[in-house]
């Protein structure tokens, strides 16, 4: 609770502020959109937070989103695969990617930044190759399949909870259980704080680090699937661009330290929500153009980490 207090207050303040400046903000449609986008980015952010907790980083998320987001419609539309087969293949590829990252980082001892930077280039390049740089989508078909992202659980006539948000809740609960109730979660925090001491305590640190990269890639694949089902259009050169940075930003806002060893699932989800409300706020303020979004997100992120650092220093001094 203590860890997410700051970000929760930020979300509430932003939410109230945006409500006051724009009446359309509270419309059911807009709220649904915010929930959905929070969910989509939140899934990526939960994934990357596992990696960040171990003290690593994954820059390949956006490219995995692209690979899966373009690959599934490509397999289904061009090669006639069933959606189930295409989705299974996509997740298998994501698992392989995670295992590969883990292997290169733990056994070949490469730096996570370098490994996943190469991944960022390779997966996008490969996607542009097999998709021949053509935009992929499901056209007007596969509406049932697309319900996975476009469907919603109707609460009132006008408002329903989008399917991706329900998925986020399920994934969030599993992630929370994994991090807080299992030995693996404890191992992740332990090795994120001090890998050498964790290894000396008999923890198979290599296996745990690899696990975190697999989780990250699999959630990136899930995000990619939902993004393309929702938007129905994936352009290999642009789809998922910078998504890893949104995910990392949400994780950091939510209390993950890039030094490793700390982070909470709820904090990360709230971090993702803050980013979406911010985006919405930018649209509602006239003099802030939407192409200035990065400026605002960057400033908010900077303020958040500076504030966090100052609070920590004060706490240390009191102790």
């Amino acid at each position: 609770m203590k860890q997410i207090f700051g970000i929760l207050i930020t979300l509430i303040v932003l939410y109230i502020f945006t409500t006051v400046i724009g009446e359309s903000f509270l419309s059911p449609f807009n709220q649904e959109q915010i929930l959905k986008r929070t969910a989509l980015y939140g899934l990526l952010a939960i994934g990357v937070s596992f990696v960040i907790i171990t003290g690593g980083i994954d820059l390949s998320i956006g490219s995995v989103v692209c690979l899966v987001g373009c690959g599934i419609p490509w397999l289904v539309m061009k090669h006639g695969w069933s959606p189930a087969a295409a989705v299974t293949a996509a997740f298998l590829v994501a698992i392989m990617i995670g295992l590969l990252h883990g292997f290169l980082i733990t056994k070949v001892k490469l730096q996570p930044f370098v490994v996943t930077l190469c991944g960022l280039l390779i997966y996008r390049g490969a996607t542009r190759g097999f998709a021949e740089d053509q935009t992929q989508g499901f056209g007007s078909g596969y509406l049932e399949f697309r319900k996975l992202a476009t469907g919603k659980l109707q609460i009132t006539d006008q408002f329903g909870i989008p399917m991706p948000f329900l998925l986020l809740v399920v994934v969030g609960v599993f992630a929370w259980l994994l991090l807080n109730k299992t030995i693996w979660g404890r191992y992740l925090f332990a090795l994120g704080n001090n890998e050498e001491a964790a290894r000396l305590s008999g923890i198979n640190t290599d296996r745990m680090v690899t696990l975190s990269y697999v989780i990250c890639s699999v959630l990136a694949a899930l995000g990619g699937l939902l993004f393309v089902l929702d938007g129905n259009s994936a352009q290999p050169g642009a789809f998922g661009n910078f998504y890893e940075l949104y995910a990392i930003a949400a994780a950091v806002l939510g209390g993950c330290s890039l030094r490793g060893g700390s982070g909470t699932v709820l904090g990360v989800i709230i971090g993702a929500a803050v980013m979406q409300v911010l985006k919405n706020m930018i649209n509602l303020i006239d003099w802030l153009k939407s192409h200035m979004e990065f400026l605002v997100v960057g400033v908010v992120l900077l303020v958040a980490v500076v504030a966090d650092e100052l609070v920590k220093r004060r706490v240390r001094r009191v102790k």
Binding site: F189, A190, N193, N194, E196, A197, A198, L200, G261, S262
Partner: peptide
Amino acid sequence: KKKGLILDL
């Protein structure tokens, strides 16, 4: 501090 303990646990 480096090898025996995990200071922040």
